[in-house]
């Protein structure tokens, strides 16, 4: 059974619940005999589980969530990592697959990592690790090259829940065309992605940014069809002109891209920023015409 939306709520609204054993998720609080909302959003319900689907930009760490972080320092045996929350996260040197006291991970300040939150408590700094529960890397670890973009948390959550769907069909379509995109979606509002060619990155970035204000169905639509369309036409057009762009989209609201020439990067950046507030059709149009801008 899926979660279904009940109604739009504001902070302070009372939720009338009949059952006695209920599970309260984010945005809800028990106040004596009543349940009150603490965030504005859509009240969601599944059997006895309730939560509020709200949107924000600032990340509050929660155990088990995947995040994209940036190394900002080394202190003793740990890295300090910026994951977008109020406090810096700690990443121990031994929290990597096959890491030992002698075999340390070689990460530098500014590097990006994809990690899992292993400890989240409001009173202590969050801890992250680059392994899954079985101590295997499982996709976690350093994110080499690529591009990171920042989005709203709700968008990242949605992409994350649709990830397998998106990835499967994207994989199929893109592999046929020989395009490779590596994506890491962080629930802290950061998406990282890496493509072989910078132009693909641009397209991917724009598609992701554009899809932010869409419904799930539309989102899938844009990420499948629009993107491949864009890729196709951009690829054709840009290859003729000899322009290459590499893009990485982080679901945490950060996008990375790399072009051979700085002027292309500027054009790409502007196009990406512009596309943020566009509708599907406009976006498609813009991507089709993107090559002209170069």
């Amino acid at each position: 059974m899926e979660f279904r939306s009940v109604r739009t709520v504001l902070p302070g609204d009372l939720v009338s619940v009949e059952a006695s054993d209920i599970i309260l998720g984010p945005g809800l609080m028990q106040n004596e005999e009543s349940i009150i909302c603490t965030k504005a959003g859509v009240l969601m319900k599944k059997e006895n589980s309730w939560f509020i689907d709200s949107d924000q930009k600032r990340y509050i760490p929660a155990t088990g969530e995947n995040v994209v972080g940036r190394i900002i320092g080394k202190v003793g045996e740990v890295y300090r990592v910026d994951i977008g929350s109020a406090h810096q996260a700690l990443l121990p040197f031994l929290a990597f697959e096959n890491a030992t006291k002698k075999n340390r991970p070689a990460l530098n300040i500014g590097d990006l990592v994809y990690a899992r939150i292993s400890l989240a408590n409001r009173d202590i700094d969050p801890e992250i690790q680059c392994t899954n529960l079985d101590n295997k890397a499982d996709g976690f670890g350093e994110l080499k090259k690529g591009f990171m973009l920042k989005c709203s948390l709700r968008y990242c959550r949605r992409l994350f829940s649709l990830k397998t769907q998106i990835m499967e069909s994207l994989d199929k379509k893109l592999t046929q065309k020989g395009i490779e995109i590596e994506v890491a979606i962080g629930l802290n509002g950061r998406i990282w992605f890496c493509t072989e060619k910078v132009k693909h990155a641009i397209v991917f970035y724009n598609a992701l940014k554009e899809a932010e204000t869409m419904s799930d169905a539309e989102l899938l639509e844009i990420l499948f069809s629009l993107k491949t369309q864009i890729m196709e036409s951009l690829d054709k057009k840009l290859t003729q002109k000899g322009i290459e762009i590499e893009v990485a989209i982080g679901l945490n609201g950060r996008i990375w891209f790399c072009t051979e020439k700085v002027k292309h990067a500027i054009v790409f950046y502007n196009a990406l920023k512009e596309a943020e507030t566009m509708s599907d059709a406009e976006l498609l149009e813009m991507f089709k015409n993107l090559d002209r801008k170069f």
Partner: peptide, 11 residues
């Protein structure tokens, strides 16, 4: 505050 998603008892 609502936009920032800060938890509030009331508005």
């Amino acid at each position: 505050l609502i936009n920032a998603g800060i938890s509030m008892r009331d508005i």
